[in-house]
């Protein structure tokens, strides 16, 4: 009788104890990827999608034009000069557009930077396709070096008619002193 009772107690205990690592793992293997997926689908935080490969050259919607505004911000401790070479671009949905961002490392040491994109309104994020972006890679600049970084994008023809202006913002982070960022998470972002 007593032994049987103890067995039952142990059974409950192990079942409950099993929940603990499961919930712990849940955070890492479910919540984080799920959140990233949600971001990608809904444009949460204005996060943009990764590299876009254009299907067979689509037609261009000449009937409307979208104003695309570029904004560059330096995060704290980032001393690079960083700005869009063109601040405003009027584009047709479906057309491929080119622009560049200028960056210069004014310091006396080589530095590495990561640009993080964000789109406003966030409902436009899913319709903004980057075929090439400097934000896909880290940027290494030696002391005093300057570079024009390319950005090529297509605004989707399915962009809701209510959206007439898209603001694309890049925040530049200094990632030099810390160990290289986890490549997988960078990939997840892009």
């Amino acid at each position: 009788m007593r032994a049987e009772g103890e067995k039952k107690v142990l059974g409950t205990t192990w079942k409950m104890a099993l929940v603990v690592p499961l919930m712990f793992a849940f955070v890492f293997v479910v919540m984080v990827p799920l959140y990233n997926l949600l971001c990608e689908v809904t444009g949460l935080n204005g996060k943009t999608q990764g590299q876009y490969t254009a299907e067979a050259a689509g037609s261009v919607d000449e009937s409307r034009s979208i104003m695309v505004r570029f904004v560059a911000t330096n995060n704290e401790g980032m001393s690079w000069e960083f700005h869009p070479t063109t601040e405003l671009l009027r584009v047709h949905p479906g057309a491929e557009n080119d622009t560049t961002f200028f960056a210069r490392n004014p310091t006396a040491a080589a530095m590495t930077a990561q640009a993080v994109p964000s789109i406003v309104p966030s409902s436009a994020a899913a319709y903004f396709h980057k075929t090439e972006c400097f934000c896909f890679n880290q940027q290494h600049l030696s002391a005093g070096e300057a570079v024009d970084m390319p950005l090529r994008f297509i605004v989707d023809k399915d962009l809701p008619a209510s959206i007439r202006t898209i603001t694309l913002s890049y925040t530049l982070f200094d990632i030099t002193p810390t160990p290289t960022a986890d490549k997988a998470t960078v990939a997840a972002l892009n």
Partner: peptide, 30 residues
Amino acid sequence: VAVMPVLAGCVTMMLMDINFGTSFFSAAGG
């Protein structure tokens, strides 16, 4: 039992971000 491990996961991610160079919560690393 269900949520204390979530808190543990949360602070573990912090610990990794602070000490082991991961970027769960830092935009710079994705």
